[in-house]
């Protein structure tokens, strides 16, 4: 509620054209019933060579969040990752990692998630990452209905259990899909390199074959003429 009031106040401040002073009221947020709390963000993006890209997320309430990433395509499938807390502390640092998963405590403030491909001068990469709350959201929360905690009936309880299991299944499916994607892109690359290598090989054999004959012929023509020259002398 406080957050809501603060937001209203900020918005009205904008409307009135006044300079909004960021107050400490943000810090005094009581855990709000923000419908956002259980949201999952997942993005797959392209990271250009020698480039970096940062994403930011504003957390309102604390809680454990799971951050997962994986390089799907490009080069040696590695990337540098850095998560920074609002106070500038490095929450997580990964150097040239292919994929990883980390759980971190959030607080009120903006966290930054930076991906860097600065070490790679040629290859651009496709990176997947996801950010979600460690607790799987209940059906009620996902429906956006904020109910007061009540005792669940057995039907509701088993439904929540099914929900948890299904959400886990979806997670496994995502993990499987990503691994399959990098596997398939590897296979496609291999297929292409086999093709190009065989073409190169064919050309090489042909050139060598013809080249050998030509060189051999010049050998004999040279000795022949030099013999002629010596005999005439």
């Amino acid at each position: 509620m406080v957050f809501y009031v603060v937001v209203c106040w900020v918005m009205l401040g904008h409307v009135a054209g006044q300079q909004v002073v960021r107050s400490e009221k943000y810090d005094s947020d009581v855990p709000t019933l923000s419908p956002k709390e259980d949201k999952t963000s997942a993005l797959t993006f392209e990271l250009q060579d020698a480039d970096d890209l940062c994403f930011y997320e504003q957390f309102v309430t604390g809680g454990k969040y799971v951050f997962e990433y994986q390089v799907l395509k490009g080069g040696k499938l590695d990337v540098d990752v850095l998560i920074t807390s609002p106070r500038g502390k490095h929450v997580y640092e990964g150097k040239k990692q292919k994929s990883d998963k980390t759980v971190f405590d959030t607080g009120n403030g903006i966290f930054s998630f930076c991906f860097s491909n600065r070490f790679s001068a040629f290859t651009h990469k496709i990176v997947y990452f996801s950010l979600r709350s460690q607790n799987i959201a209940s059906l009620a929360a996902r429906a956006g209905r904020l109910r007061r905690p009540t005792v669940m009936t057995s039907v509701e309880a088993s439904m929540e259990q099914i929900n948890q299991d299904l959400q886990e299944t979806l997670e496994y499916q995502t993990a499987y899909r990503l691994r399959e994607l990098s596997g398939r892109s590897f296979a496609e690359d291999m297929s292409l390199s086999v093709l190009s290598w065989s073409v190169i090989c064919a050309v090489l054999i042909f050139i060598t074959g013809v080249g050998q004959v030509i060189i051999l012929k010049t050998f004999f023509t040279h000795t022949h003429t030099s013999q002629k020259q010596t005999s005439s002398m």
Binding site: V7, L43, C54, F55, Y56, E57, V60, L131
Partner: peptide, 8 residues
Amino acid sequence: FSQALYFH
């Protein structure tokens, strides 16, 4: 105002 990931 629902927050989401942002970038520049």
